[in-house]
Amino acid sequence: MFNSKHGSSYDGKASDEGATTVIARGVKVEGEFTSQSDVLIEGEVHGTFSTAGMLTVGSEAKIKADVKAGSAMVSGTIEGNVIVTKHLDVKATAKIMGDVTTETVMIESGAILSGRMTVGVKPSGAAATVAAESPRGRINGRERVPVLASES
């Protein structure tokens, strides 16, 4: 009767992989947050944040933490360094104050990024560092030549 959400019965080695964690508006998370699942943040997070899954940062979210995620879509504010294993999608309302490291990135016009951005990992392991922003985006508060960086 109780069909598992993950297609199999509990085997004593449960993982939260597959279930989405939601931090809604009006909620503050403080401390060392780690997860294996997808995470949606609309509230506040202070401390450190890490998930192996997809991180979605809503437009009203405020994160004061170093962030690690498998992939991410950011519409809100992050104050801290961001490391994304795969793809980072920065929306127009996003504000990231910190260094960003990701394999690929897409930045919408209007997004604000203040910090060093490292995009792409070459086979040798060396990472390409580029200034990545949209035509109307800003890096360190200054208008820059737009680069839509995507390198694998």
Partner: peptide
């Protein structure tokens, strides 16, 4: 049967009001 407890945290936030009440958000 999943070996987990599920915590639901309900907060009433400012925003569009429906029937005079603010919407509930669930964590």
């Amino acid at each position: 049967k999943d070996g987990w407890l599920e915590a639901i945290i309900q907060t009433r936030v400012n925003g569009d009001r429906w029937l005079g009440k603010s919407p509930l958000d669930e964590t």
